[in-house]
Design a protein around this nucleic acid. Structure first.
Lengths: 292, 292
DNA sequence: GCTCTGCCTCTTGTCGATAAAAAACATTCT
DNA sequence: AGAATGTTTTTTATCGACAAGAGGCAGAGC
């Protein structure tokens, strides 16, 4: 009744680890695995026992044979129900025939996604924090959608928050750890710029880390949490609108580097200008893909 | 398994309505009651049938006797589980021995509140949007509490949002309906000011309506929704810290009236000054009660 | 001493069942 | 025809069950 995604995921992780161990050696202890993989010992134990049954290790944890591909669980089995619902829900939401204002039917979604209504319900509650669905008075949910208005409202707040965070950033003490992190991120930008032709996909991850670093400087939970919304939108947006990706990312890197230089300069005027310039083009990109 | 709070509440509402009807008359139809009370006809029907059984109305809806106090359900029975959980949870949270960082135990809460774990769980998910509790990585919840930092962060964002909304407010067209609403609210302030000695409790409601009106002018769902957080905090805060209430409210009314005048003046400089002044003292009040 | 394992208890994620309420449909009565 | 009532179907809120997973304690092995 609880789904054993954690077990399956852990099992696969152990297999990966075993693939790099020499045959005949004694593998790491339960405690060690527990610490490294983050799963509880109970789960590790269950996995080790299955490894033993499958003849991969002996009862005293000697590696008997290297694991093969068919030993591991399929990737989809390693996702918890809630993760699956999230994915399916995002896809459902992005489907063209969905209209803002539509009522969401829990039972219907439950059937479509192959989970119980309680699963849907819990997810809708969690998801409501992203403001793309709304609880209607009394009962039921209403789909608000990822519309042009949504994007505009999102960016209005993003701009306020990021601007304030950037100014808080330059106001930090010179020995604040954030400066070190910024230095590292700056180097990563340089490295990525040099390899942009082959590695342009890596930008989205770097983008997130950079903006989160800036937003964290606000030390304000509302500002920091708001980035989760942006993050979600961009995550799915990147998967969805691939046109010009390389070109867009190349331009964004240049903007980021300007922005980073401005932060190091400690000059509020430069910071504001470069931040605004970057957010402006980020908004343009998003609006373009929302189609309007 | 669903709780019949809606039925009980509706039943009480009908009793109230009947108390004002003349004996021997035919009371309103199912359809009419359904439209006026907002409950479904199914529920109205069930209530009418009980009224009949209790001898208050005849099968053809003639009022036979006036309802007495003991006919109605107790007020606590008319609250849905989720509403009850909300109340209990707020009380739980405000208890002195609770410390920021504490882990929340669902089972424990469920037992304390007398509801199922699923009920707690759903509520925690919904409540997380107020940022006073956080989902810990993996599982479980962490209580963050209503601390001084929380109040400061809340007001930092509130100030940004309200300032921007106020400026959007004065930028509205002269025939926007919000101006009319503001006029009405202005009059209510005047009326309340004259009766402040006896009616100072009514301020909190007026306060909320005024600020919501201003925030709505932003036409930004993130800004508008953020006011829910403020609203919740103030709702419980008012119940909790009664010291100087009359005096505080009197001062706040003056500030509001300044602020309203500034909005009517359309002068951004005046708006900004009066808005900031008001928020500043609102913050001071809240911080005082958070004890630091 | 420390770490490892075996065992046991407590907590959480997910499901399915079920009664209450809403909504849709059909019928009757003016 | 139009509203009111009776009937059936669909949807939602809440509960309890239960297996998976987390964490703790005690003894064993080094």
């Amino acid at each position: 009744m609880k789904g054993d995604a954690v077990f399956k995921k852990t099992f696969n992780q152990i297999l990966e680890y075993l693939a790099e161990q020499p045959l005949g050696d004694r593998i790491a202890s339960e405690t060690t695995l527990h610490q490294h993989l983050g799963a509880s010992r109970t789960t590790i134990r269950k996995a080790l026992s299955k490894l033993n049954v499958n003849g991969i290790i002996s009862p005293d944890r000697i590696l008997l044979r290297l694991p093969a591909t068919q030993d591991s669980f399929d990737r989809t089995e390693t996702l918890s129900t809630s993760t699956q619902v999230e994915k399916k829900f995002m896809e459902w939401m992005l489907r063209a025939d969905r209209k803002p204002g539509d009522v969401i039917n829990e039972l219907d979604l439950a059937r479509q996604f192959g989970v119980s209504t309680s699963g849907i319900r819990e997810y809708l509650n969690r998801f409501s924090r992203f403001r793309m669905i709304e609880r209607r008075t009394g009962s039921g949910w209403c789909f608000m959608g990822f519309t042009r208005e949504f994007a505009l409202e999102l960016f209005e707040v993003r701009e306020m928050f990021e601007m304030r965070s950037a100014l808080a950033f330059v106001a930090q003490r010179a020995d604040a750890p954030a400066w070190k992190s910024l230095k590292i991120i700056q180097k990563e930008h340089l490295a990525l710029q040099n390899d942009i032709v082959t590695r342009y996909h890596d930008f989205s991850d770097l983008d997130e880390r950079f903006h989160r670093l800036v937003n964290d400087a606000s030390h304000n939970r509302f500002i920091v949490d708001f980035y989760d919304v942006i993050s979600l939108i961009f995550h799915y947006h990147y998967q969805w609108n691939k046109s010009d990706e390389a070109e867009r990312n190349r331009a964004a890197i240049v903007e980021h580097m300007n922005y980073i230089d401005a932060l190091f300069s400690l000059d509020p005027v430069r910071v504001e200008a470069s931040c605004r310039a970057h957010l402006y083009s980020a908004r343009k990109t998003l609006l373009a893909s929302v189609g309007a």
